[in-house]
Simulated assay, not measured.
Amino acid sequence: MLQIGAYCFKQALSPQELEQVHRLNYQTFVQEIPQHADTGTGQLVDKFHEKNRYLICLKDNELVGMISWCDQPPFSIASRLPDPSILEQPGLRPVEIRLMAVVPTERNSLVLPGLVWALFQQSKTMPWTHFVISGVVEQRELHTHLGFEPLGPPIGTGRAQFTPMWLPVGKLDETMGRSMQLWQKRLERSSRTQQTA
């Protein structure tokens, strides 16, 4: 767990936290990005939920952002790849990053950088070789900035278009290493401030 001011970054574990994840999924992937049909339940449970792990950001105990990851095949990105066997190359240990979502009022805050930092730290302890994503077409500039490269053309219709992409884990250190170092320093300052308060 990591606390920065009002923001708490952690893995979702409790039923209450997972319920908030399902609500944020609904708000983002049903109402905002019409990827799934509206069932009227106010919740969207991901079809890979049983395999997913969720890194979340809470503000005053309310979920304001999350990233899910899964490192066990089959991966959802396989259906978007021209050649799914690319994920089965010898020595490849992909981790699929899925369902990145931040509530609109927090999109220019610490939430997204904090989630990326938490995932970056997680990657250092895991045997992963590549991050794989189905990147929303409108966010391609962000994904490219992080170092992701397309594995095929965009798939989907309307606003729900996704580009299969991947990024070698080591390359993230090249593209985001400086930002991650700055984040680390910020965290250390925040920790010292909280200890003296």
Rank of each mutant, 00 (worst) to 15 (best):
W166E: 04
Q16G: 05
L58D: 09
S134H: 10
S109G: 07
A160G: 06
L13C: 10
G177M: 05
R53C: 03
E88S: 08
E17A: 06
L110R: 09
K171T: 10
W117K: 05
Q72K: 14
G152F: 08
R159M: 07
L24T: 04
N52M: 13
E188N: 00
F29Q: 00
R178D: 13
V169D: 00
R98K: 03
L142S: 04
F29W: 09
T163L: 05
E50R: 13
R98E: 04
G40L: 12
P15R: 02
G91V: 07
D71H: 14
L87P: 03
Q43R: 11
L2A: 12
V137Y: 08
M1E: 11
F48I: 04
H36F: 15
E50V: 13
L44N: 12
G135N: 03
L167R: 05
E19N: 11
P73C: 05
E19D: 15
M100W: 01
A197W: 12
M1S: 09
L167D: 03
G158H: 03
L110Q: 08
V136Y: 02
I4Y: 15
Q139R: 03
M176T: 00
Q161S: 02
F48D: 13
S79Y: 07
M66C: 12
R192Q: 13
R159G: 03
T28V: 10
D173T: 07
M1Q: 10
A37W: 02
S109Q: 08
E141Q: 14
Y7I: 10
I86L: 12
L55W: 14
M126P: 03
P34E: 01
Q89D: 02
R192P: 01
G135E: 02
K51G: 08
Q35Y: 01
T163A: 06
E19A: 15
V169L: 08
L151Y: 11
Q43K: 13
F162H: 09
P127L: 02
P73F: 08
A78S: 15
S109Y: 07
K51P: 00
E149T: 03
S14C: 04
M176D: 01
A160D: 07
R53V: 04
Q89P: 03
L112T: 02
Q181P: 01
Q121A: 03
H130R: 12
A160W: 11
T144M: 09
E50C: 10
V136E: 03
Q195I: 08
T193R: 15
Y26L: 12
L119G: 01
F131N: 05
E19H: 13
E149A: 02
T28S: 15
Q139V: 02
Q11K: 12
R80M: 14
N25I: 08
H49Q: 14
S123F: 06
K185E: 08
G42D: 06
L119W: 08
D173S: 10
W128V: 01
E141H: 11
Q72A: 15
S191P: 00
F48H: 14
Q72D: 11
V45S: 05
R23W: 12
R107H: 10
D83K: 14
T39W: 06
R98N: 01
V95T: 02
P34R: 09
N52D: 13
R140F: 04
P34Q: 06
R159Y: 06
G177V: 05
A12L: 04
L18G: 01
P164K: 11
S134R: 08
V132S: 00
F120Y: 15
Y54C: 05
L187N: 03
I56T: 05
Q3S: 14
L167A: 04
K124C: 07
L92D: 04
V116G: 01
I97V: 14
T39C: 12
N25L: 14
